[in-house]
Simulated assay, not measured.
Amino acid sequence: MSERYQVPPGVEIATAWAWRLLVIAAAGAVGIFLLRYFSEITVPLAVALLGTALTINAVNFIESRGVPRLLATFAVVIFMLVAFFGMLTLVGQQLSTQVTDLRSNVVEGISQVQDWAKTGPLKLTDSQIQGYVDTAKESIASSDTSVVTRVSELGSTLTHVLAGFFIALFSSFFFLYEGERIWSWVVALFPRAARDRVDSSGHTAWASLVAFVRATVLVALTDAIGIALGAWVLGVPLTLAIGVLVFLGAFIPIIGALLSGMVAVLVALVAQGPWTALFMLLVVVAIQQLESHVLQPFLMGRLVAVHPLAIIIAIAAGVTVAGVVGALIAVPLAACLNGVVKHLVSTAQEYQDEPEDDVPLEPEPA
């Protein structure tokens, strides 16, 4: 073949990289599709793993005191259920007792906005304001035809949520009770030569997940107590509900507590006016700064340290793939991958640094 028909080395290398990247991208796309297609199973399993990482040490501690592991698992799972439903009960009770006053404040606020529209720089007349109100009513009324469809969709969603709750509950129980046995079965699926590294990588990922969940709970609890205490001092209603919302939102690092804290600012604006809302905003910003500069670096430590840019990218990717649930799962997944990559790199380095065994030379023929 003539020289001018040969493929340049750069093109050959680029082509080799290109088709391999295409195969990796295709495999990733198929994996994401399967995860989303079976989301009614994969999401509860992910939630169960997070719950297991939070409570596994409690089960081990109870078992170390001579209690059978089955009873220890039952005790921890029941405690989790009581804490979860107790928190919902307290929030529901506060909503039922204070939502009437808040609704009155909303009505009063709307009246103040109408007065400002007439006397302020807009100088709107009563007929113009009534026209805007009528337009809003017509927009709401035009959507009545889809009420039945929306109700049916809501019923289907509630059914899926209920099914996912029981899947997560039973998965958490068995992960806590015999997680080592389940993991051993998973490791046995891999080729024999790769089982040691798979097992060590899995334990590293699990240690990173446990540390991440513990630190996140402490950070979320600090955020919730700080913002709820600030709301209580300022006289903002629904203090307990705000604290619970901030606690749940703080599981999405960097932006979760800030976004949920904005709800407290909105409630303060509706209930107490702009000055109270401004002070509430200052409280939220102060708590967020405390989290970003003190709690996150101190509690997360080097084991699960992930760069803030990587966290933002992981959250964005999680939202794109699976919405709020994806944002919740993306960061712990990134922490686990970070731990596994560091572990494999250190293992490979140790393997390269090991001296080769001395191989005896065969005697030379006479």
Rank of each mutant, 00 (worst) to 15 (best):
R4D: 13
Y5N: 09
Q6W: 05
P8I: 01
W17D: 01
L21G: 01
L21E: 03
L22M: 10
V23F: 15
I24S: 04
R36A: 04
Y37D: 03
T42A: 02
L49F: 09
L50N: 04
T55G: 00
V59R: 06
N60V: 02
F61W: 14
V67M: 03
L71N: 10
L71M: 06
A72S: 12
T73Y: 06
A75C: 01
V77T: 08
F79N: 10
M80G: 09
M80D: 12
M80Q: 09
L88P: 15
G92N: 12
Q93R: 12
Q93S: 10
T100S: 15
D101L: 10
D101Y: 13
L102N: 10
N105H: 09
N105P: 03
G109D: 08
D115M: 13
G120L: 14
G120K: 15
L122S: 12
K123G: 08
L124G: 04
I129T: 14
V133W: 14
D134G: 02
D134V: 08
T135F: 13
K137W: 14
I140Y: 12
I140K: 10
A141F: 04
V147I: 03
T149Y: 14
L158T: 11
L158P: 11
G164A: 07
F170R: 00
S171K: 05
E180D: 15
R181C: 05
W185P: 00
A188K: 09
P191G: 02
P191N: 03
A194W: 04
A194V: 00
G202L: 03
G202M: 04
T204G: 08
V210H: 07
A211Q: 07
F212A: 02
R214A: 01
R214C: 00
L221K: 14
D223T: 13
I227E: 13
I227H: 13
T239H: 07
L240T: 09
L240V: 07
I242H: 09
L248P: 13
G249A: 05
F251W: 10
G256H: 11
A257M: 10
A257N: 12
L259C: 03
G261S: 13
G261A: 08
A264C: 12
A264G: 15
A268K: 08
Q272N: 15
P274V: 11
W275D: 07
W275I: 01
L278R: 09
L282M: 12
I287T: 09
Q288G: 06
Q288I: 08
Q289H: 05
E291A: 05
E291M: 01
S292W: 01
H293K: 11
L299A: 11
G301L: 00
A305F: 11
H307E: 11
L309C: 04
I311Y: 15
I313R: 12
I313V: 13
A314V: 13
G318Q: 02
A322Y: 07
A322M: 08
V324N: 04
V324E: 01
I329A: 06
A330Q: 06
V331N: 15
P332Y: 10
L333F: 15
V340Y: 06
V341Q: 01
H343G: 01
L344H: 07
S346H: 02
A348S: 00
Q349L: 02
E350F: 02
Y351I: 02
P355G: 07
E356F: 02
D357G: 05
P365T: 08
P365L: 11
A366D: 08
